[in-house]
Design a protein around this nucleic acid. Structure first.
Lengths: 251, 251
DNA sequence: TGACTTTTGTTCATATATCGCACATGATAG
DNA sequence: CTATCATGTGCGATATATGAACAAAAGTCA
C-alpha cells in the first residue's frame, strides 16, 4: 500500500472513538488528547466531527458517545453471516444445557463475543456481542488459539499480558502451549475459575465444511453448580452435537 | 463550528463502515462507492485505511469487516453506564416474566437496543445490543416518542417512512399522535403484531430520579402465548416494579 | 472463440483541506 | 491574584480529495 492510500484523519478519528472505551462516560478534549496521544487541536476536530454527525453529544465541555455509534459495530454483525447463523443453535444449546452459551472469534490476543444466549444470569461479568476477554484464560480463547499454527499461538502469547486473575490462572507460556496441544487432540477446552473465581466453562471449535475453525462456542456455569471435572461429561455431547450441525451449514 | 473543525476524511470513513451494514458480507470498491456516493478513489482510500488498521480484511478484490470493528460500538456500551446498570434488572424481569426483556433508547426515528435478556427464543428477529427497529411501530419506540414534546414527536414521524409491516400496523400520523397521548397518560405502550405477525410486546419508560425518560424497557411475547389485551394485566405490574427500582438507581 | 463493450481498480497532477505548532484566551485552583 | 491547566484559533507546511486518464478485468454477443 502506498503512503497516500492511507487517510490519517480517519485513523485518528477511529482512535478517538476507541478512547471512550478506555474510560467511562464523558471525555474532555484534553483527556481525549492524552488517551489517544493525538494533538489537542486534532482530537478536537475529530470530536467535533463526531458531534456534527450525531455520533457524539457535546455540551461545550464534555463529549459523550451517542447510541448512533452502535451502527458501526452493527454493520459488522449485520454484514457477517456467522453471528446470525450461529444464534439459533446457541439458543437451543443454552436451553438444553440450562446455562449460558456463547460464540466468539479471535481478534489478536482477545476473544470477541459475536453471539450469546443467556439462561441463568448470576454472573458478575456482563457479556454482550462485542465484549472482549483475554484469549489465554478463556475457554473459547484456548480453543481458538489451539487452532492456530504453534508459532502463531506462541506469538499471540508473547504479546499478551499474562495476568493471574485468580490463583488458578495458568500464566506460563509453555504450560499454555502444552494445554493447546491437549485441546487440539481432545477437541475441547475447559476453564476452571481461571478468569474469575466461581466461573467454569467448556468450549469447542466451530468449523466450516472444510474443517477450518471459524469460531468457538462454549457453555459457562457457576462452579457452585458443577465441578469443572464434570463439565466434559455433562456438556460435551451437547456441544459436539451443536458443532456437528454448524459444520453442515457453514460453507 | 467552523468549517475547518470538520474532518471530512473521517466522516467519509464512517460512512464507508456503515455501507457494510446495508449489504451482506463483502464489498468491492465500486460497490462501496455506489452505496456511499463517494468517489471510487476516495472510498478506496478509506477501505485501505480500515484494512491497514485491522478493521477490515482485503483479499485484493473484496473488503470484509473484522470483529475489531465491534470495538467501536463497544466503546459506547462500555462508556455509557445505562446498559450496565439496566442489565441485571432486565435479567430478573425476563426470568420472572418468562419472556424476553429488552431496553432501548431513541436514535432519530429508530429505537436502538442497548441491553437484552432472553428467555424463550422462538423469534424470527435476532436482536442484539445495537439492533434497530423503527420507533413508530415498536412498543419501546412508542414509549420513547411519547416522552418527546408533541412537535418533536410529530417531526420524527414526518421523517419516518411509515410502512405497514403487517395489516395491524398503524401508519396514520394523527392516529399515532393520539396513541402517544394515551401512552403518556397511562404510562405504557402495547404493540399487537404491528411489527411482525405473531409478536406482541408491552413497554414502559425508564426515568431517572428527576423524572426524565432516559430509556424504555419491554417484554415481548409470541401472540400465540398471550393475547395482546392481556399483556398489561399480566406484565405491567412486573414492568412497573422494575421501573421503580431503576428510577431509584439512575441519577 | 474472439472482438467489443462495460465495469472496475489504480495512478496522477493539482486544487484544496488538514495538521500541529505557537500563541491567545478563558477557567480553575491555591 | 498569580500559577496552572484547558480550550480555541491563525497560519504555513504538508497531506488529502478529486476527477480524468489509463490499465485490467469482466461481461456480452455473434
Amino acid at each position: 500500500m502506498r503512503e497516500t492510500d492511507f487517510v490519517s484523519g480517519f485513523a485518528k478519528g477511529l482512535k478517538t472513538i476507541e478512547a471512550f472505551g478506555e474510560t467511562r462516560q464523558k471525555l474532555s478534549i484534553a483527556e481525549a488528547s492524552k488517551l489517544t496521544g493525538l494533538d489537542r487541536a486534532t482530537v478536537r476536530r475529530s470530536l467535533l466531527t463526531l458531534a456534527e454527525l450525531g455520533y457524539a453529544d457535546y455540551d461545550g465541555k464534555f463529549f459523550t458517545l451517542t447510541p448512533k455509534i452502535l451502527r458501526l459495530g452493527h454493520a459488522y454483525l449485520a454484514a457477517t453471516p456467522l453471528p446470525t447463523i450461529i444464534q439459533p443453535y446457541l439458543d437451543q444449546l443454552a436451553e438444553r444445557a440450562g446455562h449460558n452459551a456463547s460464540a466468539s472469534v479471535l481478534d489478536g490476543t482477545e476473544v470477541v463475543y459475536i453471539a450469546r444466549a443467556s439462561q441463568r444470569r448470576v454472573m458478575s461479568i456482563n457479556l454482550t456481542p462485542g465484549s472482549r476477554l483475554p484469549a489465554y484464560c478463556a475457554s473459547m480463547g484456548r480453543v481458538l488459539l489451539s487452532a492456530l499454527p504453534e508459532n502463531e499461538a506462541r506469538a499471540v502469547l508473547a504479546r499478551t499480558e499474562l495476568r493471574a486473575n485468580t490463583p488458578y490462572t495458568k500464566t506460563d507460556p509453555e504450560e499454555l502451549m502444552a494445554e493447546f496441544r491437549r485441546v487440539r487432540d481432545e477437541g475441547y477446552a475447559v476453564i476452571d475459575q481461571e478468569l474469575e473465581i466461581g466461573l467454569c466453562s467448556i468450549a469447542v471449535p466451530v468449523t466450516n465444511d472444510r474443517g477450518q475453525t471459524v469460531a468457538a462456542i462454549n457453555i459457562g456455569a457457576p462452579a457452585a453448580y458443577v465441578v469443572a471435572a464434570d463439565l466434559a461429561e455433562r456438556y460435551l455431547p451437547l456441544l459436539r452435537e451443536t458443532q456437528a450441525m454448524l459444520r453442515q451449514v457453514l460453507r
